[in-house]
């Protein structure tokens, strides 16, 4: 059980600096190589090509009557499509922007005023707010009410009361025809 203590590094200074340089250079290249080897594993956890491709959903909105709302799935998330009544549109436009926690006019949140399309995820902690079905509570502002912590949204999907910091998100969407939209 020989315990050998050796200091093989006791060589003349020139040799020492040369070996040190080689040691540092090799270590640097080795570390760089390891970092480059790690990246593919991390990147493999980013969304795969087929996930990225499933990023649009088309919806036929012809059967949604005025005053009705429909929930569709887009990228795994609920999207509220509400066919707004004249009264709801009026209420949305009439709100003073200065009253809003997340100031946005109704105009910039819709393409056609009678169609409000928002992601149905409360911006507080992610619950799905109520208000899509006729019997659902809609809160004081006629929009949506989140049962988890009491956030209330108006007829433009904007946060009016409760802990949520931001308005309901408006996804990218296009009107393919007057009666069909593509989300995403």
């Amino acid at each position: 059980m020989a315990e050998t203590s050796t200091t093989p590094q006791a060589t003349p200074p020139e040799g020492e600096t040369r070996r040190d340089f080689l040691l540092y250079a090799t270590t640097a290249v080795g570390v760089a190589g390891t970092a480059m080897a790690v990246w593919p594993f991390i990147h493999s956890m980013n969304p795969a090509a087929d996930t990225l491709a499933m990023s649009t959903t088309e919806v036929d909105i012809s059967s949604i009557a005025e005053g009705q709302a429909v929930t569709v799935t887009w990228r795994g998330k609920p999207v509220f499509i509400r066919h707004r009544t004249a009264a709801e549109i009026e209420a949305a436009k009439a709100t003073a922007v200065s009253e809003l926690r997340d100031p946005e006019t109704d105009d910039i949140r819709v393409k056609k005023p009678e169609w409000l399309i928002v992601v149905g995820i409360c911006t507080h902690l992610g619950c799905v707010p109520l208000g899509q079905k006729p019997a659902d509570p809609k809160g004081e502002f006629g929009g949506w009410f989140c049962p988890c912590h009491g956030s209330q949204y108006d007829t433009s999907g904007r946060i009016r009361k409760g802990p949520a910091p931001k308005n309901l998100a408006v996804p990218n969407y296009t009107f393919l025809t007057d009666t069909s939209i593509r989300i995403g």
């Binding site: 593919p40 990147h43 795969a48 090509a49 996930t51």
Partner: peptide, 8 residues
């Protein structure tokens, strides 16, 4: 489809 899946 998985990024670098072929490599892994």
């Amino acid at each position: 489809d998985v990024n670098y899946g072929w490599l892994i």
